[in-house]
Simulated assay, not measured.
Amino acid sequence: MKVLFIGDIVGSVGRGAVKKVLPALKSKYNPHIIIANGENAAAGRGITAAIAKELFDAGVHGITMGNHTWDNRDLFEWIDDEPRIVRPANFPPGAPGSGAAVIKANGKKLGIINLQGRTFLPPIDCPFRAADELIDEMRNETNQILVDFHAEATSEKIAMGWYLDGRASLVVGTHTHVQTNDDRILPEGTAYLTDVGMVGPRDGVLGMERTAVLRRFLTQLPTRFVVDEGDWHFHALLLETDESTGKAVSIQKIRLTEEELMFF
């Protein structure tokens, strides 16, 4: 099975890039299921029902979230009715929505699990114990399992990769918006990448307008960040799995700029 996982989509620039790039990626790689991280899709903070529909209409089959999950409060009104969106499973009990789902498309099934790290992020419930519980449940339905670990610390992400080696098809990091160069298949068959990167403005700072970010660093005063405009870059990965075992066969990073798309 082929799975395309798209990095954190940032604002309208990122959403526009997804709509422009996906037809070319689908033509070249023919993925069965497409998953994207959407926690920054609404002006850099959270997601709305209209934006979720926009991404689904563009060809995305499932959406993962992260620490900005609740930034658009209308999400509380509809997330329980949208099984294709998962928020971090280790939010404390009582949070709306679900942290895991089985996505079905093109005759295939993929389990997706969203977890949030605790190092340099709010100290929510343990992501490692949440992973144990969810993977055991999910393997009753499918052995094709993708884990989006939305975390700040590289060490915590690497630890999760080793912890789930042999139990997940892919452990991929999101949140830091910079694609790392450590893609590999771990010894027990789990594909791993510390961070897949982002989709959105190329010349900002992690997608935000850089003048405001520089002002914050220089003055340490409160500063309002807004999503940058201009040219985009697109980061994703392509996973291929052995459907009989759920183990990864290959993992390939994808990195495109707006200029490169015309030659892709």
Rank of each mutant, 00 (worst) to 15 (best):
M1G: 12
M1Y: 03
K2N: 13
K2L: 04
K2P: 07
G7F: 07
V13A: 12
V18T: 11
V18Y: 07
K20F: 01
V21N: 02
L22N: 04
K28Y: 07
I33F: 03
I33H: 07
A36M: 03
A41T: 14
A43N: 14
A43V: 03
R45S: 13
G46M: 11
I47F: 12
A50V: 01
A52R: 11
K53S: 14
L55H: 10
L55Q: 04
F56T: 04
I63S: 04
I63D: 04
G66E: 09
N67G: 10
R73S: 11
E82W: 07
R84H: 09
V86K: 04
R87M: 11
P88Y: 12
F91E: 03
P93S: 06
P93Y: 09
G94P: 00
G97C: 06
S98N: 12
G99L: 10
A100C: 07
A101Y: 03
I103A: 09
K108Y: 11
K109D: 13
L110G: 06
L110H: 02
G111L: 05
Q116N: 08
T119I: 15
L121G: 05
L121Y: 07
I124T: 10
A131D: 05
E133Y: 11
I135W: 02
D136L: 11
E137Y: 02
N140Y: 00
D148M: 09
H150P: 09
A151Q: 05
A151N: 06
A151V: 05
A153C: 10
E156H: 06
W162A: 08
W162H: 15
D165N: 13
D165C: 08
V171K: 01
T176N: 14
H177F: 08
T180K: 08
N181C: 10
D182G: 07
I185C: 10
P187E: 04
E188D: 14
A191Y: 05
D195V: 10
V196Y: 01
M198C: 08
G204Y: 00
E209I: 06
T211V: 13
A212S: 14
A212R: 13
R224K: 14
V226H: 07
G230L: 05
H233G: 02
A236N: 08
L238P: 07
L239N: 09
S244N: 14
K247G: 12
I254P: 04
R255D: 13
L256E: 12
L256W: 07
L256M: 11
